[in-house]
């Protein structure tokens, strides 16, 4: 589904991603772990095409999309739940969802039904301005907005950031639900415990390099990872 091959990304003279190799199989849930400034968000930006790699290639759904603009990749089946959600605050919930399906003419009835079934609360709140929602509700809108475009690959940037522990758990339940419907997911997280619990595989990034990778269950048991992220 997604394959990063020897990707080098720079911000000006600063080398952020160094020969990054990463793969997400079809229908797989992969999580990308790492501390601050390890290059997690840059990886997502490179996948989306907001940042262009200096060398290496990004392959999506059997096609090399390295030189393609973001809108092309979204149209081909990527979708993102951005860090801090980034909703369009002065627009209603409904309008926010519609913007998610911008490239699909605003979404078919099935798209709306799918999202409203997954998040009944959003249907209730559809006329409310997104900026007036609580954090948990905003997270739902951000998820729904991403799902409106019928993605094959869902990218999630720190979905548990700024949420109460009970909402984090609920959030990951929804992620798993979406995953079970056949969507491949790449989750970027600092919260290793929760994300590895539902992931198939995981990668650990450190200063732009993959230092550890493997099945989620193995990573959970791994001595170094436990020391670095789980604190026990």
């Amino acid at each position: 589904m997604l394959k990063l091959d020897g990707v080098d990304t720079y911000y000006g003279p600063i080398h952020i991603l160094q020969k990054l190799e990463l793969e997400v199989g079809s229908g797989e849930l992969v999580c990308l772990l790492g501390g601050n400034a390890s290059g997690k968000s840059t990886t997502l930006k490179t996948v989306l095409g907001i940042v262009k790699p200096r060398s290496g290639s990004v392959e999506f759904d059997g096609e090399d999309v390295t030189g393609r603009p973001t809108s092309y990749r979204i149209g081909k089946g990527m979708a993102i739940v951005p860090e801090n959600r980034r909703l369009f605050a002065p627009m209603s919930v409904r309008e926010n969802l519609e913007m998610g399906a911008y490239l699909h003419g605003g979404g078919t009835k099935e798209d709306w039904d799918r999202v409203y079934t997954l998040f009944p609360l959003l249907h209730e709140r559809r006329a409310q301005l997104a900026g007036t929602l609580s954090g948990g509700e905003q997270q739902m809108v951000a998820m729904g907005r991403a799902l409106m475009s019928r993605p094959k690959l869902l990218l999630m940037d720190e979905p548990s950031m700024g949420l109460a522990p009970i909402l984090v758990e609920k959030n990951f339940e929804i992620i798993q639900q979406v995953h079970e419907s056949g969507v491949a997911i790449l989750v970027v997280e600092q919260n290793a415990n929760v994300s590895l619990a539902i992931a198939d595989r995981g990668y650990v990034l450190q200063t732009g390099r993959v230092v550890l990778s493997g099945p989620a269950a193995e990573l959970l048991r791994h001595e170094d990872l436990r020391k670095a992220y789980l604190g026990r």
Binding site: S71, I74, P82, R86, F88, E95, M99
Partner: peptide, 19 residues
């Protein structure tokens, strides 16, 4: 609405695939 969205948050609009 896409105008409004890209006015409020151009990066988020870009990430939704809007030109």
């Amino acid at each position: 609405r896409a105008w409004k969205a890209s006015r409020e948050d151009p990066l988020a609009a870009e990430m939704m695939g809007m030109p």
